[in-house]
């Protein structure tokens, strides 16, 4: 029993990149209109948590910070097999940058107490900074392993391999620890029908739902409102602008023999003597 782990996974709800999101006049994403999804990077973190729990037992607690609809990603995590969810939602958190976000999430983890491992994704698809995870580790005063691809827990220690330039670094660290999981790690497994069914059954019971999914605000986690939101965020967005739009100008070269198609392709790439020809002819 002693090696059972208390695992926290941080997940974020982001605008669905497969749908066309609206852009506000000031260049920020219109989140209210955008379809929402779980940050794809966080799925690798959740999978690592599920693997670790399967090996050692314990609980998986998913934490998300965001407006009330972000509760959807907690349902999602529970349908994937997480045990509990916490949603930190507070108007005062609006417009938090990574410094402020990391502070708020750090207070959440402190509130939850006695955590063995915190998993996060590498970064988010909306902010793309990859700063929040490491900042939380610093605030918690935990060791951190970033870009982690693989890990095991042995004798109360984490043995991990992380991606570095040109290879893989193997390292060992004590717990509690924060790990940001690389997107080359194991993909999140599909939801299982029976799991989804059971979580629906469970969440139907209001009491059980309250136990499984808890709402937090700044007061509850004893966080300083001055350190979050716009006032707590030193980052200033100078300007955002549209640099282009994805569009289809895809052409498949097929039908004829491959050698012939390659020639057609090269012809298409022609830049009238200014580039590619000298390399391919």
């Amino acid at each position: 029993m002693s090696d059972e782990l208390k695992i926290v996974v941080l997940i974020k709800q982001v605008p669905d990149t497969s749908s066309v999101a609206g852009v506000n006049p000031d260049g920020t994403v219109d989140r209210a209109r955008a379809k929402r999804m779980i940050n794809p990077f966080d799925k690798f973190a959740l999978q690592k948590a599920l693997e670790l729990r399967a090996e050692h037992g314990g609980v998986i607690i998913a934490i998300s910070m965001g407006p009330p609809p972000a509760i959807e990603v907690l349902f999602d995590a529970i349908e994937h097999g997480a045990d509990k969810g916490f949603l930190l939602s507070d108007k005062r958190l609006a417009a938090s940058d990574t410094l402020a976000t990391a502070y708020a999430l750090f207070k959440c983890i402190e509130y939850i107490k006695d955590v063995d491992i915190v998993f996060t994704g590498l970064q988010t698809t909306d902010g793309d900074t990859a700063q929040t995870g490491p900042q939380i580790a610093e605030r918690l005063n935990y060791p951190q392993i970033t870009y982690c691809e693989d890990l095991i827990v042995e004798n109360g220690k984490v043995k991990a391999s992380r991606i570095i330039d040109g290879g893989v670094q193997k390292l060992e660290a004590p717990m509690p620890i924060l790990v940001t999981v690389a997107n080359s790690a194991t993909r999140l497994e599909h939801k299982q029908f029976a799991n989804v069914y059971r979580s629906k059954e469970l969440l139907r019971d209001e009491q059980a739902k309250k136990e499984r999914i808890q709402l937090l605000d700044l007061d509850k986690i004893n966080a300083d409102p001055k350190k979050v939101g716009l006032v707590g965020s030193p980052t200033v967005v100078g300007k955002t602008w549209k640099i282009g739009e994805k569009g289809g100008s895809c052409r498949l070269f097929k039908g004829a023999a491959v050698s012939k198609e390659v020639e057609t392709l090269v012809d298409c790439l022609s830049t009238e003597g200014r580039g590619i020809e000298e390399y391919v002819r």
Binding site: S18, G248, S249, C250, R251, L252
Partner: peptide, 14 residues
């Protein structure tokens, strides 16, 4: 106008 390969892009298949 779109080739079939191009237009399928707009079906957002995954």
């Amino acid at each position: 106008l779109y080739s079939t390969a191009d237009v399928v892009f707009y079906a957002n298949t995954h």
